[in-house]
Amino acid sequence: MVWLVVGVLGIAALLVLRFAVEPAALPNRLQDLLTLSISVIVESLPFVILGILLSIVVQVWLPEGLLMRYLPRNPVARRFCISLFGIALPVCECGNVPLARGLIVGGFTVPESMTFLLAAPIINPITIITTHQAFGFDDGILVARIIGGLAIANIIGWLYSRHARPYELLTPKFAAECARAEGDDHHHSRWGKSLDIFVRESSAIMPALFIGALAAGAIQVLVPREVLVSLGSNPLWSVLAMMVLAFVIAVCSNVDAFFILPFASTFLPGSIVTFLVFGPIIDIKMLAMLRTTFTTRVLIQLTVMVGLLSALLGLVVNVVA
């Protein structure tokens, strides 16, 4: 409570400062770092809020077991259905993190929720529409993106379903939260519980978003982009360069097709596909946000596996197209 008052007063004081004091000009690079980082935050913020709200709906307002009841029993078919959830949800990758957390709390297994998390940003309706607007059906980019994304999500979901104790994939803090939710106390009203979840999720996600945004901004200011672009026409290097670019740029999956469109003339189609599949799942901002939920070990495994699979996908498209 004390901290809250301090915080509110602090915010007010800073605002007064902004309008009252003539600011000293920052050096260009520092100013750009700030602009880029804030831009990542402002862009992601509405999706994060939407994701948290959907997560609350799944955890509190949907009748218990509603989603479970209609899913197939067979684990592989079940994960495949879950990987299709994203079609109905216009949430890009940052909003999916709180939603995937909500699914785990709501009773889904960790690999199932991971399958959702990896597939949803790629097959969400806005992403499909913008990718189609940007590329049409040229070079199979759209088809390769959707099928490749679903395949990678399901393969990784399957791999983790082999894990003997899936709760060990989670950070101890989040695992404890899930355990607490299972022995749920029912004397909270639904509204009270919703507010609780909002507070809890936003305090978990926001610092991660800030740190991810700062890292993304810093890399962009420090690494010259032409280094990557100059690698564009080699079948192997172009794929790797695009993965690095996707990792660094941390742009939302809803619009990454437009972002990459100008590069389409210099880069091979396979490398574009790699960018469009790897970027939504793994980038510097996402790793910071996923760290709220999964252990560092899992994140390293994820990065390597998704990297290898999407590179493979890109190389195949390069050879075929």
């Binding site: 602009t35 880029l36 831009s39 990542v40 402002v42 862009e43 993304a216 901004g217 962009q220 740029i249 941390a250 742009v251 939302c252 809803n254 619009v255 437009f258 972002f259 469109l261 100008p262």
Partner: peptide
Amino acid sequence: VTCCAVDAQ
């Protein structure tokens, strides 16, 4: 800008 300042070309 296509989305936000991050992707500004």
